[in-house]
């Protein structure tokens, strides 16, 4: 295995997440009860997704400046992994919503924002598939991805702060900060975010290497 150290970090952090995520002390809260532990498994999915989308954004901008095919490949694979994490985040969110808010899908800005983000990146893949030429595909997809990312930021960061939201910290709800500041939660939450992100990067890395292999097989 190449670059063994960050994969080791990933394994350690994930094992830490699944053990301490269940055993660690959490603040006792009404309605949420033990389900606050979903912070380590559900919320981290969105964080990891956002980090991977930023990887996509970075590589898209980089590709426009210097069109190297590898950069475009990284951009595509990072957004693909982000989609996987996003779908997991949506599904886990639905389960959690059912037991805290009483419905599988609630009309919530944050939730709709997440669903909208998935739609944007689904469109991104359709756009990619409709272009044959590799150089052209990279350029046009990069333009769309930068544009889409900017809109998505408005969607999931600015809009939820304007309307009512069931999510903490928005629309008059008590912020996560009141217990997010709780060091007991932070102690597991941040390592969990890094762990899940590294797992995504790992899978992405394997897919990229398979692509390279495929390409050298074709040539």
């Amino acid at each position: 295995m190449k670059n063994i150290w960050w994969k080791a970090v990933c394994i350690i952090l994930l094992m830490y997440t699944v053990t301490m995520g269940f055993l660690g002390d959490v603040p006792a809260m009404a309605i949420l009860n033990e389900s606050i532990r979903n912070l380590y498994f559900h919320v981290t999915m969105w964080f990891a997704m956002m980090i991977l989308l930023m990887v996509n954004l970075y590589n898209s901008i980089k590709y426009l400046g210097d069109p190297v095919l590898r950069t475009d490949e990284i951009a595509e694979e990072s957004s693909r992994m982000a989609m996987v994490l996003g779908i997991l985040g949506l599904l886990t969110g639905m389960v959690w919503a059912k037991y805290t808010w009483g419905a599988w899908w609630v009309n919530d800005v944050q939730l709709n924002g997440a669903a909208g983000t998935m739609l944007v990146y689904a469109a991104y893949f359709i756009l990619r598939n409709s272009i044959e030429d590799e150089q052209k595909r990279g350029r046009i997809a990069a333009v769309y991805s930068i544009f889409a990312f900017a809109m998505m930021i408005v969607f999931i960061i600015i809009l939820p702060r304007m309307g009512d939201s069931l999510h903490p910290g928005k629309g008059g709800n008590p912020g996560f900060s009141s217990y997010d500041l709780d060091h007991r939660l932070r102690l597991v939450f941040y390592p969990a975010v890094i762990g899940w992100t590294l797992l995504g990067v790992w899978i992405m890395n394997i897919r990229l290497r398979i692509r390279t292999i495929n390409k050298s097989l074709e040539s």
């Binding site: 190449k2 995520g21 269940f22 790992w202 899978i203 394997i206 290497r209 398979i210």
Partner: peptide, 20 residues
């Protein structure tokens, strides 16, 4: 949960090695 996680990671490592 730890067993499931460990199993998935071991599988991922084996895929990684195969690609290598």
């Amino acid at each position: 949960a730890a067993t499931v996680m460990l199993g998935l990671i071991i599988y991922l490592i084996s895929i990684d090695r195969k690609v290598s």
